[in-house]
């Protein structure tokens, strides 16, 4: 007896398979509808509401939100006290991003190029492990490390390098009474907390650069630094940009670290937190929230114009 050309149907699973085989678009629609609803309604919807709120203003006498279109709230952002907050956050975010990039690159490069097998696992574990512990615990731990009575002061006394520490703390603006109450301390904590978000995309980008590309550069006469500037960096740039989007936007929106570490100067995240909470000024809070979004959009368009995504 010969086998039939068509095998018997085995029930619902086979019938569904047949249906989706005949209607591949239905399958796609079924697959995408729930996440698109979530993304569209919950995420983009609330973002749009935020945008809308930022064009309202608050009535100064009653403290109620006036649902009328105005640019008054945005004008308030330019007031010196508010504009300082924006500028301060922007500078800190830029410094943190730069610090993360410089520290992350060698680690990511090592992991992408040389780490194999067990060492790769150690790398991933080492990068991910800090992400598993509570963010607050890490920040408070850093406060203790940086405090005047903390480990760093103790270590500098033990190694007779107090003079160096004091010289660093005596720096104008970024220095302070102790590391935990200075911009330097805040910078260190930000870099520590966000650096995994820089390393991982960088490593992924560097891993996609074939070794033969680096060999070709060397073969054609390039020195190490020429290869870095003309081949590695441009090819890894999409990863660097992706990482910097994380570190930049995470720093811009953070409102915990500036409260715990540093000199209590106001940052965008803290301003939003205070404005929508105690002050009840939702429109101004919304306008503040739009600042990081606008800055990121400008940053991305500049990066695109500079050719950062050409290698994608």
């Amino acid at each position: 007896m010969t086998a039939p050309a068509i095998l018997p149907e085995r029930g619902l699973a086979d019938r569904l398979t047949a249906f989706f085989w005949r209607h591949p678009k239905t399958f796609l629609a079924l697959l995408l509808t729930p996440p698109l609803l979530w993304l569209g309604v919950v995420y983009l919807g609330s973002l749009f509401t935020l945008l809308l709120q930022s064009f309202y203003s608050i009535d100064e006498f009653s403290g109620m939100v006036k649902p009328e279109f105005t640019l008054k709230t945005y004008a308030e952002l330019l007031r010196p006290s508010n504009f300082d907050v924006i500028l301060r956050t922007l500078l800190m975010s830029a410094a943190v991003t730069l610090g993360c990039a410089v520290l992350a690159f060698p680690i990511a490069y090592y992991a992408a190029r040389f780490a194999r097998g067990r060492w790769k696992a150690v790398f991933y574990l080492g990068i991910m492990l800090p992400l598993w512990s509570s963010y607050l615990v890490k920040v408070y731990a850093w406060k203790l490390i940086l405090a005047k009575e903390g480990i760093i002061t103790w270590a500098s006394e033990a190694t007779h390098t107090t003079a160096i520490l004091n010289a660093v703390l005596a720096l104008p603006v970024i220095g302070g009474n102790s590391l935990s109450t200075s911009y330097i301390g805040m910078f260190l904590v930000f870099v520590y907390v966000w650096i995994p978000y820089m390393i991982l995309p960088m490593q992924a980008a560097l891993e996609r650069v074939p070794t033969s590309m680096l060999e070709a550069s060397q073969d054609l006469g390039a020195s190490r630094s020429q290869t870095f500037r003309t081949v590695i960096l441009p090819l890894a740039l999409p990863g660097v940009i992706a990482g910097s989007i994380f570190t930049f936007s995470l720093t811009m929106g953070d409102y915990i670290i500036p409260q715990i570490v540093g000199n209590s100067a106001n940052f965008i995240g803290m301003a939003v937190y205070q404005l929508q909470g105690t002050a009840g000024n939702i429109p101004l809070a919304a306008a503040f929230s739009m600042v990081p979004i606008v800055i990121m959009l400008i940053y991305l368009s500049l990066a695109k114009r500079a050719g950062a995504f050409d290698a994608l």
């Binding site: 033969s212 590309m213 070709a216 441009p234 090819l235 050719g307």
Partner: peptide, 8 residues
Amino acid sequence: QDYALFPH
């Protein structure tokens, strides 16, 4: 072997 042309 894979030509290793610089894509950027």
